[in-house]
Design a protein around this nucleic acid. Structure first.
Length: 626
RNA sequence: GGGCCCGUGGCCUAGAAUGGAUAAGGCGGCGGCCUCCUAAGCCGCAGAUCGUGGGUUCAAAUCCCACCGGGCCCGCCA
């Protein structure tokens, strides 16, 4: 085994030398060995000794006679640096990778634990824009990794199929003369979002009669019968099926679609409201500006209490969306007695089934042993999500399991806003997208642009390929490029879309990763020699660097189980690729002498396994020839 | 007014949860490397008072406080 075994060995050596809590870290530079410890600093502190002296003493008291991987320990500047026997270490790394294959990097930390993750959740009245794509790509990547770690995962997509945003579109079709069939070459979701919705919003804002009509439509949709209700149902289904095409194109998959209208049927709120009243978490406002409302008592919350209590039931007895969200969240944590029924909606590209809530359905989800509920929702919902979480606590549920996975939005650069016909103010650097105003870049639109750009490049490199083959590879490059650029930045940082910049296929991009993988494949393909895990007498620095990087994967993924941060994984993918390219440049494989060659083939093979696993986790399509 | 987030070379970012040994990449600029595993690659050069000022510490980009700049949230909308 690789790094984990090495760390365990170093820890046990330190314990034998009398250190209670051996703190091991990866060395910052190879000259400091593979791993290092700063225990000397900790030990020196209370005794006021010199850390350098403590380190020296520790070094001398470490007994290496039974060590397997550790070859030497050196005290340098107070650090204890562990160097390994690279011959043994290299072989153990390769063996581990070959033994575990497609499972390499996984551990069983998720076994027997259930996780719910909800992502995408785009209103079914428009196509996905690039901001929604960030949500989908983050959510899907988290799902892929958790699945890999052995978690029993359920992927939800919440569909808000009622409310004003739907009524806007319905109004367009019913009263503004729009035909249900989109123009030539336009998808239905684009037609609804780009044309009908935008126009309808504009008209209703200007015309009180239309605004009133829209209110009636909202009510009728909620009543679950009548021609507007039926029309809405039709629109929702058609838009949703188009949206899913985009999601699938991005590589995402879902288990369950929870339709808001169906969820409301179960009257979760009534039950949750009852419990909130029992717990004295809500109260009725008999006077003041909120007279007639039921409010959630936030006085016990350190921060939220400063902004006043939250209305859950309005004076007209209808619920606010946050009330419905609390009820729905309670369901996710198993805090309601109701159990939705489902029927099959369709299939994901991988062949698994997607279920949708349905009164006539007979399938039920098996929610037990829930470990975490992850809700991928942009950062603007931080406050409401915090309220939901707090309410779950008041209900006596395990609110710490409820995670708002908040990510910053995608905004437009000045140049992209201008391209969309929006003139930014002189000092405006960031332009926020808006569905209502039709100011957004569609996810498909951007993938198409990327695909066309990539196709030029592919065709140039492979003049003998037919158009179909070129397009196929270009599509994979485009999807990879988009996914990578959306999951790589810190979730706390806004992405300011710059399509010019994004169309580049060099440097720290997914095409670089894909290309690196393809290069490795070619070496294996062209060789008919034996693959070996036995290193020659001396390893080159590039070989060591690459091997070393590969050993990080299991630990990195283990950390993911705790922090759910996608970024470090994307970062790791780049470094791993970069290390391979260095190796590729400096350590020839196919024309090395036989013993070196078979070992290097082993490294290349191991690289394709480890790197392939990482690419799959990130949802970056693998291309063997590009 | 209250709260949250961000601020690292010209531009974009990593490093920050667990403080540690010379701050790491990409883009752009300049200069190199294909008779040999795909040059979507590799190497070199130039370019950083890690927003500012204090503090804690043997040690701060990282922790604490204040301030400055930018963004977001605070509706009987969702």
């Amino acid at each position: 085994m690789g790094l984990r075994k090495l760390i365990a060995e170093a820890e046990s050596l330190l314990r034998e030398a009398g250190v209670e809590d051996p703190k091991i870290q990866l060395s910052k530079s190879p000259e400091y060995g593979e791993i290092s410890s700063t225990v000397a600093f900790q030990l020196a502190r209370p005794s006021k000794k010199n850390p350098l002296v403590v380190a020296e003493e520790l070094m001398r008291s470490i007994d290496l006679s039974n060590a397997r991987l550790v070859a030497s320990v050196e005290a340098v500047n107070g650090y204890l640096n562990f160097k390994v026997d690279w011959n043994k270490y290299a072989e153990s790394i390769l063996r581990e990778i070959f033994e575990e294959g497609e499972r390499y990097g996984s551990s069983r930390i998720g076994e027997g634990k259930q996780v719910i993750i909800e992502h995408t959740s785009v209103n079914p009245n428009k196509p996905l824009h690039i901001g929604h794509a960030r949500n989908t790509c983050l959510g899907d990547t988290i799902a892929r990794i958790l699945k890999f770690l052995g978690y029993d995962l359920i992927v939800l997509n919440y569909i808000d199929d009622s409310g004003t945003q739907m009524a806007d579109v319905v109004l367009g079709f019913s009263d503004l003369g729009y035909q249900l069939d989109p123009p030539e070459n336009m998808r239905f979701d684009e037609y609804c979002g780009d044309v009908v919705y935008v126009e309808s919003v504009k008209r209703a804002e200007a015309d009180p009669v239309l605004a009133e009509k829209r209110r009636q439509i909202v009510k009728e949709i909620e009543s679950r019968s009548g021609k507007y209700f039926e029309l809405n149902k039709l629109i929702v289904e058609r838009v949703l099926r188009d949206q899913l095409k985009t999601c699938w194109r991005l590589g995402a998959r879902y288990d369950v679609l929870n339709m808001e209208s169906d969820v409301l049927e179960y009257r979760l709120w009534d039950e949750v409201f009852e419990k909130l009243r029992e717990k004295n978490a809500v109260y009725y406002a008999g006077s003041g500006p909120k007279t007639g409302c039921w409010l959630l008592d936030l006085s016990g919350h350190p921060v939220l209490s400063r902004e006043g209590d939250e209305v859950l039931v309005k004076s007209d007895h209808t619920t606010t969306y946050i009330a419905r969200d609390i009820a729905y969240a309670a369901w996710k944590l198993g805090g309601t007695s109701k159990d939705f029924t489902y029927e099959i909606f369709g299939q994901n590209p991988d062949g698994t089934e997607i279920y949708v809530t349905s009164g006539n359905g007979s399938t039920r989800l098996k929610l037990s042993k829930i470990e975490k509920v992850i809700n991928v929702i942009d950062v603007r919902q931080r406050r409401p999500q915090e309220i939901v979480k707090y309410a779950l606590g008041l209900l006596g549920l395990q609110s710490e399991k409820y995670i708002h996975y908040a990510y910053e939005v995608v905004a437009l650069s000045r140049s992209d806003a201008e391209k969309l016909g929006y003139p930014p103010d002189p000092d405006q650097q960031v332009i926020h997208m808006s569905g209502r105003r039709g100011l957004y870049v569609k996810a498909d639109q951007l993938i198409d642009m990327l695909r066309d750009r990539a196709a030029e490049e592919v065709a140039q490199r492979h003049p003998d390929w037919d158009r179909r083959r070129v397009e196929e590879v270009a599509e994979k490059i485009a999807v990879g490029a988009l996914r990578y650029s959306l999951i790589k930045p810190d979730i706390d940082k806004m992405i300011i879309l710059n399509t010019e910049e994004m169309l580049k296929l060099e440097g720290d991009t997914a095409p670089y990763l894909q290309y690196t993988y393809a290069r490795a494949c070619r070496i294996l393909e062209k060789s008919d020699s034996q693959i070996s895990t036995k290193p020659p007498d001396n390893l080159t620095e590039d070989e060591r660097t690459l091997l070393r990087r590969m050993t990080y994967l299991p630990i990195l993924l283990q950390e993911f189980g705790e922090n759910l941060l996608v970024k470090p994984i994307a970062n790791y993918a780049y470094k791993l690729a970069s290390d391979f390219n260095n190796f590729y440049e400096k350590s020839p494989v196919l024309w090395a002498e036989e013993s070196v060659k078979s070992f290097r083939l082993g490294i290349v093979k191991a690289f394709t396994i480890a790197f392939g696993n990482v690419l799959r986790l990130l949802g970056i399509p693998i291309i063997e020839l590009m």
